[in-house]
Write a protein that binds this DNA or RNA. Structure first.
Length: 867
DNA sequence: GTAGGGTTAG
């Protein structure tokens, strides 16, 4: 025994009349007893003297042990046991199983193992009840392998032993073993009892297994556990968890006797599945049946009122809960706070929170913080978060995952550090929130690092990472990740598919990729889920395949606002204004709600088609008929609408009338239009504003310099270029991509790196002769260098999109449309060139530039030369 | 009773 302890014990013995009594009861922890008392007989004896009615026979010992165990007086029970070990009495199987039960209850594995070692000499561990208690003890203290070994070595096993083993695996989250062992048990001829069945069902509930749940139900019927209310209660939970509410209700209806757990389970089932009307039905029936609602009943029902966003109902339930005496109940008050926050009644929620009498715990703090976050009060949430910690309440994984939806860069880094310190980094929910924060901050590298650290990645974590890749357009990475999650046995849901399909909408993605995920979604019967079909419409539209987008839209069995918006935006991007507006009309005919996004689609459709008056009409109608406040994006659309039509004064007028200062997009739009319409004065103004807002954005300098060049003002152009050099701003080079046989090829202007370069350039020379015969005149206005026209022509003829088109003509058969993606806007001369190529080569060519789609066919473009 | 991921816009 350790010297230090020995001397402190000696000191205590000398200074106090009842040293061990005080020592044991006031200072030492359970662990301490386990390490010392068992080994020190005289300590135990002295302690034993303090027990009020000293038992003498084994039976009396056992009875006292049992009552200590029942009242969870662990220390007292262990002391009694130690004294028994040092008396002349021999413990029997009841003593030992009771002691192991006590160790299991204390959750102290070290202690349990020590007691086990002490008891081996009594030779009773083979006894079925002792063995069973031992299994339970090892399982509860996370020593799964030891528990299993004891079980395997037991000579005789009964239903209780088997149930302990099953419950042990379930306790340790190893649900997969539970069903297997349950089958093995029956194979060995042991019939389950109601506890076994409850345990198995609880495990299935946790694992979410559908098929097996039905088998268990069949068995319940077969073995007739009719009188076992807990079995039925857990069946109700099982079916609710699996979304099989009708089956849950069947069980509920067939029960002759129901306890309050039954009613609460049924209510919780309806709440979980969003069937709020049924919640109230059961709640009323519960009261009619004379069963008093508990605090959990109120909490569930209030949650239901919250999801209905019915403030009146929330208040009604609040009154009812108060009348039933739950005026200060923490759980009920927390549920009320959440409900009020959901109904946007933040003042009421906050005042309930500040008045919480029973003290605020981590749940109520987190509920209030989330309430602020959902109502846009990020700063308020951050303040509450620090206040919570000042008051000594430690955040849990709920709190961290909630607060991490605040995406202030410095705050996110601070939280990341804190999450590492508190060991929540590996938690799936916290990790997911953190990785999403990095994604939203545009930092994919850290997002990936966080993702890799998450220990047990659940579906949400995978989906968040997929969404991250979708945002950065990393289609290949997204596809790889998707296949990896399948390989790990995770079953994707509709959200997983919407993320990965969204990643396939990136302009550089292989066209086949999106189709493959579409096929996969059909196979998994998830293609009709709203978010999947909307993602498909957008993906096909962005990939240039507007017909497939419409096909998906047409086949949708149900549509929501997003579905309609996706189709309108799709048509609008393709310049098919008429169709976009038809979809909008159809939407209104069906009395669908419209929103701010709908009008962005509608107005841009008008912009691309030059329908200025119509655009203005829709803008007015949005404000006056639909009471939607225009955002910056709407104003940008309107400025685009007017300035593309050359009505720059009108555009300027809108800028002056805007209720908030115009942002960079507004000035960029105006600058582009000023360049096209050669309005140097307005261009200078717009460029100046744009450069002051975004000094690092190359587009502003390039547009301004091109504008000076177009006006022949080479001096000013040189000045702008010099300014760019000084500020180290680089012009984004123009790239074009083309996909041939599932491989993407990219071209720079004047590119010579392609293996077929020679053939590409000779194709271009051949085309240039044929096009000139067809009346093509190079438009050298589009070359912004102070050089001779002949040189300008050469520069034009080697723009990246032309190289890509030439390669497309060489490398693909004539019936295949050529699809090109360009990162900048296509220039006027290349637009003419492409029109004529589509005529002389009889090819369908689709070009997606940074702004919209151009469909070239028979010498014409879908944009009507208006872009 | 509290939490994280997803679909529409430019």
């Amino acid at each position: 025994m350790n010297m230090k302890l020995n001397s402190s014990l000696t000191t205590l013995t000398n200074t106090s009349k009842n040293p061990f009594f005080r020592f044991i009861h006031y200072s030492i922890s359970l662990k301490f007893i386990s390490n010392t008392v068992l080994c020190v007989p005289h300590i135990a004896h002295n302690l034993f003297d303090k027990i009020p009615h000293r038992p003498t026979t084994l039976k009396e010992h056992n009875q006292l042990l049992f009552s200590y165990s029942r009242d969870k007086q662990t220390k007292e029970a262990l002391n009694l046991f130690v004294s028994l070990l040092h008396s002349s009495l021999q413990p029997d199987e009841s003593t030992l199983s009771c002691v192991f039960n006590i160790c299991a209850g204390s959750l102290d594995g070290k202690l349990g193992r020590q007691v086990h070692c002490q008891c081996v000499k009594f030779g009773l561990v083979d006894h079925v009840s002792v063995g069973t208690s031992l299994v339970d003890m090892y399982m509860k203290t996370e020593n799964v392998n030891d528990g299993r070994r004891v079980f395997d070595e037991m000579g005789e096993r009964n239903v209780v032993s088997w149930t302990s083993l099953l419950a042990g695996y379930s306790w340790n989250g190893l649900y997969g073993y539970v069903w297997e062992l349950f089958c093995q048990m029956q194979y060995e001829g042991v019939l389950p009892n109601r506890y076994t069945v409850s345990t198995v069902i609880a495990a299935l509930v946790n694992e979410g297994v559908v098929g097996i749940g039905l088998q268990v139900h069949a068995m319940v019927v077969k073995h007739g556990f009719e009188e076992a209310i807990p079995v039925f209660n857990s069946l109700i939970s099982l079916y609710s968890r699996l979304g099989m509410l009708r089956d849950a209700r069947d069980v509920f209806d067939k029960m002759e006797i129901r306890d309050w757990v039954t009613w609460n389970s049924m209510i919780a089932g309806y709440v979980r599945n969003g069937q709020d009307l049924e919640v109230f039905e059961i709640f009323n029936k519960m009261q009619l049946a004379g069963v008093k609602p508990t605090h959990m009943t109120f909490a569930s029902v209030i949650k239901s009122c919250a999801s209905l966003r019915e403030l009146a109902l929330v208040k009604l339930m609040q009154c009812k809960a108060l009348k039933s005496g739950f005026t200060t109940d923490q759980i009920v008050i927390t549920a009320l706070m959440v409900a009020l926050s959901k109904c946007k009644e933040m003042d009421d929620a906050l005042s309930l929170f500040s008045l919480m009498e029973e003290g605020k715990n981590v749940v109520s703090w987190t509920a209030m913080i989330s309430g602020c976050l959902q109502n846009g009060g990020n700063d308020q949430a951050v303040n509450l978060f620090s206040q919570m910690r000042r008051e000594g309440v430690k955040p849990n994984h709920f709190t961290y995952s909630a607060i991490l939806t605040v995406h202030y860069p410095v705050f996110v880094s601070e939280m990341h550090a804190e999450v590492i310190k508190t060991n929540y980094e590996r938690s799936s929910s916290v990790g997911t929130a953190l990785l999403d924060a990095y994604v939203k901050l545009g930092n994919t590298i850290d997002a990936v690092k966080v993702f890799e650290i998450i220990e047990a990645k659940d579906l949400m974590a995978w989906s968040a990472m997929l969404a991250g890749y979708a945002q950065t357009g990393e289609t290949e990475e997204a596809a790889k990740l998707f296949h990896q999650l399948i390989k790990e046995g995770i079953k994707p849901n509709e959200f997983t598919f919407s993320s990965v399909i969204n990643a396939c909408a990136s302009p550089t993605a292989a066209a086949e990729q999106g189709k493959q995920f579409h096929a996969y979604a059909i196979k998994m019967r998830l293609n009709n889920a709203l978010c999947v079909s909307s993602a498909l419409v957008t993906m096909y539209a962005k990939r240039g395949n507007i017909d497939s987008a419409h096909e998906v839209f047409k086949r949708q069995k149900e549509r929501d606002l997003v579905s309609w918006n996706s189709m309108i935006s799709g048509y609008s991007q393709h310049g098919q204004a008429k169709k976009a507006l038809e979809v909008f009309d159809e939407m209104q005919k069906r009395n669908m709600d419209v929103d701010a996004v709908t009008f962005i689609g509608v107005i841009t459709a008008c912009t691309h088609a030059g329908l200025v008056e119509k655009g203005q009409k829709y803008f007015n109608s949005m404000i006056n008929d639909h009471h939607i406040n225009p955002t910056m994006k709407h104003y940008s659309c309107m400025i685009d609408l007017y300035s593309r039509a050359g009505m720059l004064e009108k555009a300027m007028g809108i800028i002056n009338e805007m209720p908030f200062p115009p942002g960079a997009t507004v000035w960029r739009t105006l600058l582009g239009a000023a360049r096209v319409h050669r309005n140097v004065e307005l261009g200078e103004l717009a460029a100046e504003k744009l450069i002051s807002l975004q000094p690092e954005d190359s587009a502003a300098y390039v547009l301004l310099s091109n504008m000076y060049a177009a006006a022949g003002n080479w001096q000013e152009r040189t000045n702008v270029r010099k300014l760019m050099d000084k500020r180290k701003v680089k012009k984004e080079p123009g790239y074009s991509w083309i996909e041939v046989k599932n491989k993407t090829y990219s071209f720079l202007a004047g590119d010579l790196t392609h293996p077929l370069s020679n053939q590409i350039y000779s194709k271009l020379s051949e085309l240039s002769i044929r096009l000139k015969d067809a009346g093509y005149q190079p438009d050298t206005k589009n070359v912004f260098h102070d050089i001779e026209d002949e040189q300008k022509e050469t520069i034009l003829s080697h723009h990246s999109e032309r190289l890509a088109i030439a390669f497309g003509l060489i490398a693909t058969p004539p019936e295949i449309p050529i699809q090109i993606v360009k990162n900048l806007r296509v220039c006027g001369d290349c637009h003419n060139f492409t029109k004529l190529v589509s005529l002389v080569e009889q090819r369908y060519i689709v070009v997606r530039d940074s702004n919209r789609f151009h469909h070239f066919k028979d010498g014409l473009c879908s944009c009507g030369d208006y872009w």
